[in-house]
Simulated assay, not measured.
Amino acid sequence: MAARLLLLLLLPLLPRAAGTVCGCCPGPLGNGSAVGRYCAGRAGAEPRGRCCLAGGAQPGRIVGLDLSNCSLRSLPPGLPEAAGAIVLDLTENPLATLPNSSFRGFTRLQSLAVPPWLQCPGGSGAWQQDTTHGSRRLCRGQRNPCNSSGELAWLCPENALCAPDGPGLSQCLCASPWRGYKCLREGAFPVLLFGGVLGTVAAALSLLLWSTQRRKAKTP
């Protein structure tokens, strides 16, 4: 019981294995597609479903994703699994909209192909190139929003720095050694204290549940 409860408490912190978004569309990664060509030219990379997975020092990380011609009317819920992708293809899909928040965390993305009637996420200013060729719009060279205007830096509180968070998106990160709400606390995060409190709470809940179930079992 204690192990199960501890697992439930830690489950949100565990990394998810790649695979869900790689298999959300039938068929393998096409050799002639942009993602397929990128995967073939990247040392150590290998295709898996519609994904290109990195090798070497970062095995299993999705660096390319080809969801073209998948009859998608909206972005798949597993898209955040590919936040480390460098090349992404969404062409030949009846997508009605492309919310900017869907690409939050896609800071490595450098080549994005979408249907021509859609705009590049974050607008054309979020990319070095925004061009349309036939049945696709190409968004290339993601810009760092923190470098494009000094206004973003003023949005962050004192002791915090602006950092990119996807096409046209930014976030405020506490500068070392500051942390906490609005970066007002100084010092390193108390990992040992946090782990001790978490373990104590898990043990107390396990003991409480065990004693409750035991009483119920003894009741005729």
Rank of each mutant, 00 (worst) to 15 (best):
residue 17 A to I: 05
residue 160 A to Y: 02
residue 157 P to C: 07
residue 33 S to N: 03
residue 61 R to N: 00
residue 103 F to M: 02
residue 25 C to L: 01
residue 149 S to K: 12
residue 24 C to E: 02
residue 87 V to S: 00
residue 136 R to H: 07
residue 176 S to V: 06
residue 187 G to Q: 10
residue 173 L to V: 11
residue 93 N to M: 10
residue 182 K to M: 10
residue 138 L to P: 08
residue 142 Q to R: 14
residue 158 E to V: 07
residue 217 A to W: 09
residue 138 L to D: 10
residue 191 V to F: 03
residue 164 P to F: 03
residue 94 P to M: 05
residue 175 A to F: 02
residue 74 S to D: 09
residue 146 C to T: 12
residue 57 A to V: 08
residue 6 L to I: 10
residue 177 P to I: 07
residue 10 L to E: 10
residue 25 C to W: 05
residue 28 P to C: 01
residue 96 A to V: 13
residue 173 L to K: 08
residue 166 G to H: 00
residue 17 A to N: 11
residue 87 V to F: 04
residue 180 G to P: 14
residue 92 E to K: 06
residue 94 P to K: 02
residue 37 R to P: 03
residue 83 A to T: 06
residue 118 L to K: 01
residue 219 T to A: 10
residue 200 T to I: 06
residue 159 N to A: 07
residue 199 G to A: 01
residue 46 E to I: 15
residue 137 R to W: 10
residue 77 P to D: 09
residue 94 P to S: 05
residue 180 G to K: 09
residue 51 C to G: 06
residue 41 G to A: 11
residue 201 V to A: 09
residue 204 A to P: 12
residue 152 L to P: 04
residue 119 Q to N: 15
residue 11 L to P: 03
residue 146 C to P: 12
residue 168 G to L: 02
residue 175 A to E: 05
residue 65 L to R: 08
residue 185 R to C: 01
residue 36 G to P: 06
residue 63 V to I: 13
residue 107 T to N: 13
residue 202 A to C: 12
residue 158 E to W: 08
residue 171 Q to F: 07
residue 156 C to Y: 00
residue 165 D to F: 02
residue 171 Q to H: 11
residue 78 G to M: 05
residue 10 L to H: 13
residue 120 C to T: 11
residue 115 P to S: 02
residue 136 R to M: 04
residue 117 W to F: 11
residue 25 C to E: 02
residue 38 Y to H: 12
residue 42 R to P: 13
residue 96 A to P: 01
residue 103 F to E: 10
residue 78 G to H: 02
residue 184 L to N: 02
residue 47 P to V: 07
residue 168 G to H: 05
residue 218 K to N: 06
residue 142 Q to Y: 14
residue 202 A to H: 00
residue 181 Y to I: 04
residue 198 L to K: 12
residue 95 L to D: 09
residue 204 A to R: 13
residue 200 T to G: 14
residue 139 C to G: 13
residue 165 D to C: 11
residue 151 E to L: 14
residue 113 A to Q: 06
residue 201 V to E: 00
residue 152 L to R: 11
residue 65 L to P: 10
residue 88 L to T: 03
residue 140 R to A: 00
residue 212 T to V: 15
residue 15 P to S: 02
residue 203 A to T: 14
residue 137 R to C: 05
residue 119 Q to H: 13
residue 217 A to N: 03
residue 218 K to E: 15
residue 190 P to G: 11
residue 157 P to G: 11
residue 192 L to E: 14
residue 67 L to D: 04
residue 169 L to Q: 15
residue 165 D to E: 13
